Each structure stands twice: as structure tokens, then as C-alpha cells.
Simulated scan of single mutants.
Amino acid sequence: MSVPAVDPELRTLLETADTGVFPVHGLDAVLADPGRYALLRARPDTPADDQVEVRDLFIPGPGGQLRLRIYRPDTPDVLPVVLYVHGGAYTYGSPEAEEGRSLRYARDARAVVVSVDYRLAPEHPFPAAADDVYAALVWVAANAGEVGGDPARIAVAGGSAGGNIAASTVLRARDQAGPRILFQLLTYPGVDAGLTTHSAREFTDTPVLNRAALEWAVRYYAKDSHADPYAFPIRAADLGGLPPTYIAVAEIDPLRDEGRDYAARLSAAGVTTELVQVPGAVHGFDLLFPSARISERSLADQVRALHDALHP
């Protein structure tokens, strides 16, 4: 099967734009190179937004002090809360690396965004990241007032590896009678370690994310935990009772089909599920190139889904 055509504007940006230390080709080579990998882990400069206050807050976590980065619109109102989980193949990334998306969610969905600086593999394999994010959820539900948030209106969102951990967090909250979650939003999530879907087998050399990088990420993160549903939520025997869900997948992405499969299983379990496949998009397109037309449309749709769920 031939790979679908990349959106023309994205294709030009992939060929010409400066994405800093992030490689748009050959991520697997960067993960294997200690020097380049260290640069990928560095926290980038962050954008400014005079409509959103940004601050760090530290709470006790399972592995020690856990940093939460808080994004709150400039309003005295009590707002819903979006617990956000950044991506980065489980091995890099930070709240700062995805600050543009957090600012957008906070400003346009009118919510307090709490982005979790969870522990990274390979130094901290599963369940470290999942434990950190679940601890953040429990803290937010118990202390929402400290960030001007409403504990009765909590959503969990994440992209890529963060989409996996977000889905795991929601599943765990159901299983352990934890905080009530109104909504989950997963953007091109990696929810299956098997790498046996059609897109994972066929899209071996796609831009931004290729199969070799996926294999690195799964090995570093999961080690021998592939069957654990909190490591890879598609392995859960039952997906019933989860909150309404929005899943966006990129058409030209090895993770595409596992996102589609997860949406199908949620729907079959009676969970209200919206699945959007973004045509011509590659993995991480809206983070790398947020001003591209295709990214603007996708980000606006994500905001719409969050706003509708949290401001009924």
C-alpha cells in the first residue's frame, strides 16, 4: 500500500521549517544518540500569552516532588480543569515543550490546564509516568480550589505518549473509584504496544514518527509490561463506564490505526466517542506547525470538544 500524500502546506514546512532540535525525519537515530537525545530533553523557550497566567506548582508525588505547570485564563471565575499529559515517546518532552497547546486549551476552552511534568523512561519505566499522572489527578480533584478550578468538571487530555498515559489515567480512575472525569481527549494516542496494526506495519518511514522510533519508545517505557492495561489501555478487557471521548488521529502516522481501534472498542462498549481522522496529517503536526491551516482546524476542533464537554 502506498503512503497517502502529505498535506501540501505541511510538506513544505517539513522540508523548510526550523523545528529546533526536534527532527522531522529519523527520530529513531536521535533516541539512539546520547548527545542529540540530551538536547531533545532540554526545556524549550515558551510562548507568552497575556490572557493566561502561567506558574509552576509542586506537590508530593510517588517518586518525590512532582511539578505541575498551571495555565489559568485571566478571570475571577471558577473554571473547569483539564489535566494535560505531554507526549515525547515516553522518553522526552515537558509541559514547556507543548505550552502552545496548553495555552490554547486554557484560553479558548476557558479552563485551567494542569500539565504534569511526569518522570521519563528509560530511567523511570512504567508505571512511573502513569503513577505520576494519576497522583496529579487525585491532587487536582482534592485541591481544585488552589488553582481556581471546579472539581466537578475535570477532563483528561494528552497527545501521543501522553494520549496513552491520559487514557491509562482515565481507566484507572474508573477501576479504583477515583475522581470523576467528565471527558477525555486523546490526540494521535499510542495505546497498543503490539505494533501489529496495518498503519504500524506499513508506515515504517513516515515523517516525524517512524516504526523504529516506536519500537525504541515501547521498549524503553514498557519493558515486560505490555499486557498491563495501565501501560497500554487497549489491552483492557472492558472499556465500559468510561467518560465521553474525543480521539483525533493523523492519516499518515504509524499510530493511526490503534487510535481508530481504541475508538471502535470504546464505542462498542457504549462510550460516547467522536473519532476524527485528519487527512494529510503526520504525527505531531499541530504541535510542530500550529499555524498551518490543517493544524488550526484540528486545534479549533479539539478546543470545541473540550469546551462543549466542560461548559454544557
Rank of each mutant, 00 (worst) to 15 (best):
M1W: 11
S2N: 15
A5M: 10
V6E: 09
D7E: 12
L10C: 02
L14N: 07
T16I: 06
A17N: 04
H25V: 13
A32T: 07
P34A: 07
L40R: 01
L40M: 03
D45G: 15
D45S: 14
D45N: 13
T46W: 02
P47G: 07
L57D: 03
R67E: 13
L68T: 09
R72T: 12
L79W: 02
L79P: 06
P80D: 04
V81R: 00
V81Y: 01
L83N: 00
L83H: 01
V85N: 02
A89E: 06
Y90G: 03
P95C: 05
G100Y: 07
L103D: 00
A106G: 03
A109I: 08
V112G: 04
D117L: 06
R119D: 05
L120C: 00
A128F: 03
D131N: 15
D131C: 03
D132Y: 04
V133N: 01
Y134T: 01
A135L: 05
A136T: 10
V140G: 01
V140W: 04
N143P: 05
E146N: 03
V147T: 00
V147S: 04
G148C: 05
D150M: 01
A155T: 04
A157T: 00
G158F: 01
G162W: 01
G162A: 02
G163V: 00
S168K: 03
R174W: 09
G178P: 11
P179H: 02
P179A: 05
L182Y: 01
T187Q: 13
S199H: 08
L209F: 09
L209K: 08
R211A: 14
A213I: 06
E215I: 13
V218M: 09
Y220S: 14
A222W: 06
K223G: 13
H226S: 13
A231S: 15
F232P: 08
D238N: 13
L239K: 08
G241F: 11
P243F: 10
I252C: 09
R256V: 08
D257K: 14
R260G: 08
D261H: 12
R265M: 04
R265Q: 12
T273Q: 09
V276G: 02
V276L: 14
G284L: 06
L288V: 11
S291D: 15
S291F: 10
A292I: 06
I294V: 15
I294H: 04
R297A: 13
D301K: 15
Q302V: 10
Q302H: 13
V303A: 12
V303M: 11
L306Y: 08
D308G: 09
